[in-house]
Amino acid sequence: MADPCKPQACAIQDCLKQNNYNESKCTQAIDQLYACCSNFYNQNGEEARSPCCPIPRLLRFKIKQRENEMVDAKLMES
């Protein structure tokens, strides 16, 4: 089975290369990968594995971490 999230993972790599590995310039691509991975686990169960996706527990942590960073960024704008 082909990895359904491989295009999103490749998009992150391309974005990082184009932006001198500045992750802050690739947040949209990262969010798209995490959304794909969430869908992957919702459809296939948490025991499923994808080389392009963090394990479910780590994925949830990373999504929560990114949400907190967005809240912090919005607070700094105020």
Rank of each mutant, 00 (worst) to 15 (best):
A35R: 10
Q8R: 05
A29L: 07
D14A: 13
E67L: 08
K74F: 05
Y41F: 14
A11Q: 10
P56D: 11
S38F: 05
N44T: 06
R49T: 11
I63L: 06
Q18W: 06
L33N: 03
A73M: 12
K6T: 05
K64V: 11
K62N: 13
A11L: 04
I30K: 14
A2L: 05
L33W: 10
F61E: 09
K64Y: 07
Q8E: 13
S78Y: 01
C53E: 09
N42E: 12
I63H: 01
A73E: 13
I12N: 05
S50A: 10
A9T: 02
K6S: 11
N44M: 04
I63V: 15
D72R: 15
S78I: 08
E47H: 10
I30W: 05
C37Q: 07
R57D: 13
R57F: 09
L59C: 08
D72E: 15
D3P: 02
A73W: 04
K25Q: 06
P56F: 00
D3H: 04
N68A: 12
Q28S: 13
N68L: 12
Q43K: 15
Q8H: 12
S24A: 03
A9G: 10
C15Y: 07
Q32K: 10
A2W: 01
R57P: 02
A29D: 15
Q13S: 09
Q43V: 04
C5N: 00
K25P: 00
M70H: 07
K17S: 04
P54V: 08
N39A: 09
N42V: 00
P56R: 04
K62I: 14
R60V: 00
L33E: 04
F40K: 02
E23N: 04
N22D: 14
D31Y: 04
E77D: 09
C26F: 03
C10K: 14
K6Q: 14
Y41R: 07
R66G: 01
D72H: 05
Y21V: 01
N39Q: 14
Y34M: 08
K64L: 10
A11S: 09
Y41Q: 09
T27Q: 15
A35Y: 07
E77P: 00
N39W: 06
G45H: 07
L16G: 02
Q18V: 00
P7V: 01
K25L: 02
C5K: 00
M1H: 07
A11H: 03
R49P: 01
C15N: 08
R66N: 10
G45S: 13
I55N: 14
E46T: 15
Q8P: 02
C37M: 03
C10Q: 15
P51L: 04
A9C: 02
I55F: 12
I30P: 04
L75F: 13
E77M: 13
P7N: 03
Q18T: 03
E69I: 08
L58H: 10
S24K: 14
